[in-house]
Amino acid sequence: MSGVLSSSIGRKVAMAASAFFLMFFLLQHFVINLTSIFSADAFNELSHFMGTNPAVQFALQPVLIFGVVFHFVMGFVLELRNKQASVKYVKNNGAANSTWVSRNMIYSGLAILAFIVLHFIDFWFPEINHKYIANLPEDPSRYYGELVHKFHSPVRTGAYVAAFAFLALHLLHGFKSAFQSSGMSAKRAAKLETVSKIYAIGIPVGFIIIALFHHFNQH
């Protein structure tokens, strides 16, 4: 089996598997964040559950972090190996046969990585500090206030909006590509085209709306 995972196809499918996991996580993250527009209480309740449930904290969270790290590391490894395999042309017309997003997944991925670092600094590190380092008393109603406070800054809001635009670019190719890598025929993958576009554009645009809503709705 180790031979399978070190093969080019094995790496490709592993990349797709981690992408599926991250896309599922992104969807549930979006659904929870979306509640913050409609109900502070619902957002607080869901966030409190996610932040304190032992199964989420000690089983799902490590798997998520592994999934994120794996996807990035494997992405870099594949990019480096592909660079080693190729030789540059003096004149290359890539636009004649493929989309810009499909050829530049590494750059949209790097932008998302930079965003995740910012996101961890904004939310994840303070959360870990609150619960496990400073051991501050648990307050189930603090989450909504923390979220709204973060989107006070126009610079941070702008950075989030830009990052979600890169996320949309990444997903526009990545969603379909993950299905194809895992062996789905191009014809079936083509049928997913609409779902792919709805997910790739809908989720990032939704995140942008949430960020802008809280930025312009400061009390």
């Binding site: 080019s8 080693q84 395999a85 493929s98 890598s181």
Partner: peptide
């Protein structure tokens, strides 16, 4: 050889 990233350029 490198790894396929499904750009579809080959098919075109």
């Amino acid at each position: 050889f490198g790894n396929c990233t499904n750009t579809g350029a080959c098919e075109v």
